[in-house]
Write a protein that binds this DNA or RNA. Structure first.
Lengths: 122, 122
DNA sequence: TGGCTGTTATAATATGGATATAACAACAGG
DNA sequence: CCTGTTGTTATATCCATATTATAACAGCCA
């Protein structure tokens, strides 16, 4: 999987890493049991510091997307805590839908956009 | 409209303000043409600094949710730039749907959740 | 043993959030 | 005209976080 960092983005590097890895899991570019590159390898690859990668991995571990094995590094292992996910999801969607509503984007357009995104990654 | 700040949140105060005001617009608690409290009044009300409120208002202005009139302060005036909104919306949804997908939340559940949120605020 | 892994510690730098104090120009109302 | 309010701007300080750097440690494997 190709990981690209936008150094001009206002989004923190470790969050860009986290987000791209989550997108990679969702689109099956990473599969359950796969190992991620070691913190030093990935840091070298994208040209950033080892600790920045480590921070991304630590967040992913705390959020239950990977488990860490000293031998194999960070391994994809998704903990599907539905309850916690759903409450967080609801909060995020509430804000997004509010912003969209203000901009005269209808509920139907939201549903269509979701269908489009699911179509896109398949 | 009641505005509440969670000082223990990891979310910046000015962003909490911004988000709550956007939610207020979406739920018609603020209507086109309404004036927001002055930066000094709102700062006093919620117990924060004037500049923090000013930052929230500045962001809302740049994002096209209010216009600023020296006489009337910050006035709700939504600029419905659909193109820009839709591209931003797509990016946000891509990540949210990816996270949900990892946690075994189906597309149908997302659609239902959106219906629920629309029902809730009506 | 040598080389890889994650982990931890410490420090330096930079950036951004929040606060404080202060001043300015524009305008409304008395 | 004067006073008070508005947003706006300019500094300055304090603190938290992001990023980098260097270094060391323990666990594991060939």
């Amino acid at each position: 999987m190709i990981i690209e960092i936008d150094f001009n983005s206002d989004e923190a590097i470790y969050l860009q890493l986290r987000n791209q890895i989550i997108m990679g899991i969702a689109t099956s570019q990473f599969q359950e049991g796969d190992s991620l590159p070691s913190v030093r390898q990935l840091a070298e690859l994208v040209g950033i510091n080892m600790h920045t990668v480590n921070k991304a991995y630590t967040v992913l571990k705390q959020e239950g997307f990977v488990k860490v094995d000293r031998r194999r590094g960070a391994v994809i292992a998704v903990d599907a805590d539905r309850a916690r996910t759903l409450t967080g999801l609801r909060k995020q969607l509430q804000l997004i839908l509010a912003e969209s509503s203000c901009r005269n984007i209808s509920k139907e357009e939201i549903h269509e956009l979701i269908e489009e995104i699911y179509e896109e990654y398949r």
